[in-house]
């Protein structure tokens, strides 16, 4: 088995069990590979570096929000690759570039280049957050940005803990969708 595959898969399995550090590690590592993947493909089509960074963030969002769709009996790399490629094709469709220009690629290529030179994306998180319903925005703000625990956020807002969790989950999902919409020209 590919050494990168086993490393990433171990992180993913731990992350699915609720290990925040493994989750962060996984997203960090994946962001490097995704950047390499997108930059390689977009520069070949004459696209810019910041568009690649937008795609990296979109793919990371999708990986986070949809991590329940990873079946641990399967390899992780093809799952990541399917998401990365879906987002690439979606981006090209939105920007009206024919998908026939995209060379076929294989699952391993998603981890072929590790590029850690991140740039800033054009996305403004603060502004995107304002597009969310208040309950979701507040839950994300308190737990994900201010770093309160779910219990603290629940006391502060007077909602139940499960309501906070549901609002975070729905909010991130809505955010992920808002990012895709945002980038539709």
């Amino acid at each position: 088995m590919h050494p990168i595959e086993s490393e990433l898969k171990a992180l993913m399995v731990a992350s699915l069990a609720g290990d925040a550090r493994a989750h962060r590690d996984l997203l960090r590592k994946l962001s490097g590979y995704l950047r390499g993947y997108y930059r390689g493909r977009l520069t070949r089509m004459g696209r810019g570096v910041s568009e690649a960074e937008d795609l990296v963030q979109e793919a990371l969002m999708a990986i986070h929000v949809g991590r329940h769709t990873y079946d641990t009996a399967e390899l992780l790399t093809p799952w990541v690759h399917a998401i990365a490629r879906y987002k690439l094709l979606d981006f090209l469709r939105r920007t009206r570039v024919s998908a026939t220009n995209v060379a076929l690629d294989y699952a391993e290529e998603v981890v072929a280049v590790d590029d850690s030179a991140s740039t800033e994306s054009a996305l403004d998180l603060g502004r995107l957050l304002t597009t969310l319903p208040a309950r979701m925005r507040e839950a994300i703000q308190m737990v994900k940005i201010d770093g309160l625990s779910v219990a603290e956020a629940a006391t502060r807002s007077g909602a139940s803990e499960s309501a906070i969790k549901v609002n975070i989950h729905r909010g991130l999902k809505a955010l992920s969708a808002a990012i895709s919409r945002e980038r539709t020209p």
């Binding site: 699915l16 925040a20 962001s31």
Partner: peptide, 12 residues
């Protein structure tokens, strides 16, 4: 973004 996503991760 990664910091945002990996603060308080629940089991899936």
């Amino acid at each position: 973004l990664i910091d945002l996503l990996s603060t308080h991760v629940d089991p899936v």
